[in-house]
Design a protein around this nucleic acid. Structure first.
Length: 424
RNA sequence: GGAGGGGUGGCUGAGUGGCCGAAAGCACUGGUCUUGAAAACCAGCGAUUCGUGAGGAUCCCAGGGUUCGAAUCCCUGCCCCUCCGCCA
């Protein structure tokens, strides 16, 4: 959520900045509501103040043994007025909250102008795109060898956009997870964390998947309320600091977690229907940092390099792009996507997304740290990034490292996790 | 699933329907003392919000209710703890 104080002070300016994200902020509605709010709030607080003093004097009179009947008569209609005022204040505040909760984060000035992925700006490339002296297969064909990748069974067991992995492919999938976690823990200084795969509404509000993007989530009814399957580890891990005040000495918090991710892909029917690219359930190793505000931009660069490092070790060619305003996510002020080369599609595909949300999520979550300079709690900054999406990494690995006979070379860094195998 | 006990400031922990935004301790900040530090002593120290300011409002798990007045009484939910049962 944006700082309501800043929005109030300059609604036009905020609206102009949000335009870069292709979001139209309802300036006039907001201003009108704000004006009403101010008026009704002052009135309500005056009534409350009046009631408080009256009640206090009743208490004193009673203690002194005086007759309180006339005093009671004085306050008799105060209650009804107050109730009315409170009710309309709640109504106005609800409307204002609805607006503010639906407003995306402001894009950073460094974010390029643009509408969609066409306008994203490439920052750098790494690696050499492989050239094959045979007809390379796609990951589905490669996975079919020895029934390593079985979409039919998954469709029977569950439905479309699920997969069954078997044998060496399943092992490689697991090896990738272990490799990524170990690298983040040992080389990049993250703490491993295991978290629930279902979360409550409050957590999703905190990281801002709710209230706007409920249709992207799998909901699980439980008793009187609902749980939701996590769409990313960002949700449970970031919410660790919800309603907390972190000691400055404990900053920054750097967590890495492996979790499955569940997405309804509601708006993507017909896209990437074949193969492992877009599934309802996929594994991801996530990096999360909670940092002091002055450190968050450096943290974004660090996290991006951490994700890149995984790809380098796996010998997979990639490029880093700076997302344009129109392609930027709801909570992000700036996002780097990392795209890996997918030979069968003859293009780069997203395999990681690293975002700085500044204090946007922290404000929703009331996640703060105690500034030792001021002694006061202040909002911290949260960042999240994939390091990496495991299913897509498997795709890239199979396709980029394939041989003419359909075997797959195992990159050196991954071999210890594959029992020393150099190829499968 | 059954039976009990709890949820109070950064932490621990008192709290009678009005004198409670809340005792006390710890932690923290400033000062005295000290070559410096520790200890001791003195002082300060919750958050959010409205207002230029004085000051006002709100917050004692959450949401309702009773009352002129609720941290305190009642109801519902959530969470935690103890015992019993069941169980990966």
């Amino acid at each position: 959520m944006l700082d309501p104080k800043i929005v109030r002070a300059n609604p036009e300016d905020i609206a102009a900045q949000l335009l870069k994200k292709k979001y139209v902020f309802p300036v006039e509605t907001f201003k009108a509501l704000e004006e009403q709010r101010r008026e009704v709030q002052v009135n309500t607080e005056n009534l409350q103040s009046e009631r408080n003093t009256q009640s206090k004097s009743i208490g004193k009179a009673k203690a002194a043994g005086d007759d309180i009947a006339p005093l009671l008569a004085q306050v008799s209609n105060l209650g009804a007025q107050l109730e009315e005022a409170k009710a309309s204040l709640v109504e106005i505040n609800t409307k204002l909250d609805d607006i503010l909760l639906g407003v995306p984060n402001l894009p950073d000035p460094e974010v390029p102008e643009g509408v969609d992925e066409e306008d994203n700006v490439e920052v750098r490339r790494w690696g050499t795109i492989p050239s094959f002296d045979f007809d390379p297969l796609d990951h589905i064909e490669l996975g079919n060898r020895e029934k390593g990748m079985d979409f039919e069974s998954a469709a029977k067991i569950t439905g479309a956009r699920f997969v069954v992995l078997r044998g060496k492919i399943a092992r490689m999938h697991r090896a990738l997870i272990q490799f990524m976690l170990d690298t983040h823990i040992n080389d990049h200084g993250y703490e491993e964390i295991y978290v629930p795969y279902m979360v409550n509404k409050e957590s999703l509000m905190g990281t801002s998947q709710l209230p706007k993007f409920e249709e992207d989530l799998f909901k699980v009814p439980f008793g009187e309320r609902d749980y939701y399957m996590i769409p990313t580890a960002e949700v449970p891990v970031t919410n660790m600091v919800r309603d907390e005040i972190i000691d400055e000495a404990d900053m920054p918090l750097k967590f890495t977690a492996h979790t499955p991710c569940f997405r309804s892909e509601a708006g993507a029917s017909g896209r990437d229907t074949r193969g492992l690219i877009r599934q309802h359930q996929f594994e991801k190793v996530e990096m999360i940092q909670m940092v002091k505000p002055e450190d968050s931009w450096q943290a974004l660069e660090d996290m991006t390099s951490h994700a890149e490092n995984i790809l380098k070790k796996l010998e997979l060619p990639y490029r880093v792009i700076n997302l344009c305003g129109g392609d930027l996510g709801f909570a992000a002020a700036k996002t780097y996507d990392i795209e890996v080369w997918v030979p069968a599609q003859d293009k780069y595909r997203e395999i990681s997304s690293i975002s700085n949300t500044l204090d946007f999520q922290a404000r929703r979550m009331k996640a703060r740290w105690r500034n030792s300079q001021t002694g006061k709690p202040e909002l911290l900054h949260t960042l999240n990034g994939s390091g990496l999406a495991v299913g897509r990494t498997l795709v890239a690995l199979l396709e980029n490292h394939q041989n003419a006979d359909g075997s797959i070379n195992v990159p050196v860094a991954l071999q210890p996790y594959m029992g020393g195998l150099t190829a499968i």
